[in-house]
């Protein structure tokens, strides 16, 4: 936490700029350990059918205290606006919260968003009172359109979901941030701590990740690293970096050198 520095979405103050997913952990215990180490306040969840015949598995919400975390349900796995809207409505009913991480996927291999369907679903859900946080590609024009439709934030991908490639188009992310009047949250593609720091140094308001932590050899340690990286990147952004130059500038005085 950085003093007096917080992100505000739909009137909620969020102090941790690291949002984390709840998928792919080896155990609930490991996930809880990772959350604690990361310091995250916002956690994403997916909406799926209950397995009626096998009820043995622990419920996710037994492990996540809704008083401690802001639940952000997603519409992952939806390939058209109609399905995404259906999942969002179910999520609202199950979670009693209006927040939705809106995903409308356009391609199975890349999991890139379908812009047209994403815009359509955003339009409908904003009208229904949802706080819509759309997962979008790193295109400033789409980000602007989502914002104009009433999205509460825009969440451009850094790289394909689960790829760990880091921020592939930092210049676009910077432009999206410069143009946006709503928070910009880099969502997807973070592989290691420096990737998260890069996103924050570009000025983004937060970073959302799942596989980068859950898929690491030691997820709890990686969660801590990500928390530190997000904080370091944020501090560096606030501090204002030096301009890049092609040649050296000495750090030590050139006066007072010994006689030759």
């Amino acid at each position: 936490m950085i003093e007096n520095d917080f992100l505000e979405i739909a009137g909620r103050k969020i102090h941790s700029r690291l949002f984390v997913g709840t998928g792919k952990y080896a155990s609930i215990q490991q996930m809880k350990g990772a959350f604690e180490a990361s310091g995250a306040e916002v956690v994403t969840v997916a909406v799926r059918r209950i397995n009626i015949s096998d009820r043995s598995r622990e419920s996710l919400l037994d492990a996540i205290d809704p008083k401690k975390f802001i639940l952000l349900p997603n519409t992952a796995g939806c390939y058209n606006a109609e399905d995404a809207i259906r999942y969002a409505r179910l999520a609202r009913e199950a979670g009693l919260s209006d927040w939705i991480k809106l995903e409308v996927i356009g391609d199975e291999k890349t999991l890139y968003p379908d812009n047209e369907a994403l815009l359509e679903a955003t339009r409908v859900l904003v009208k229904e009172g949802f706080v819509v946080l759309p997962y979008t590609n790193d295109d400033p024009v789409t980000a602007r359109k989502l914002e104009d439709l009433g999205a509460a934030a825009v969440m451009p991908l850094g790289a394909p979901i689960g790829s760990g490639l880091g921020i592939q188009n930092p210049n676009n992310i910077r432009i999206i941030k410069e143009m946006a009047r709503v928070p910009v949250i880099v969502d997807a593609g973070v592989g290691t701590a420096s990737d998260a720091a890069v996103a924050m140094e570009l000025g983004c308001d937060a970073v959302l990740m799942n596989t980068g932590i859950a898929g690491a050899q030691d997820p709890v340690r990686m969660a801590e690293a990500m928390g530190l990286a997000v904080k370091a990147g944020r501090l560096a952004y606030l501090a204002g970096r030096i301009p890049k130059k092609s040649y050296a500038t000495a750090s030590s005085p050139t006066e007072g050198m010994l006689a030759k």
Partner: peptide
């Protein structure tokens, strides 16, 4: 009838 709940996801 469809009955859903929250599961782990990103």
């Amino acid at each position: 009838v469809e009955i859903v709940h929250f599961v782990g996801g990103g």
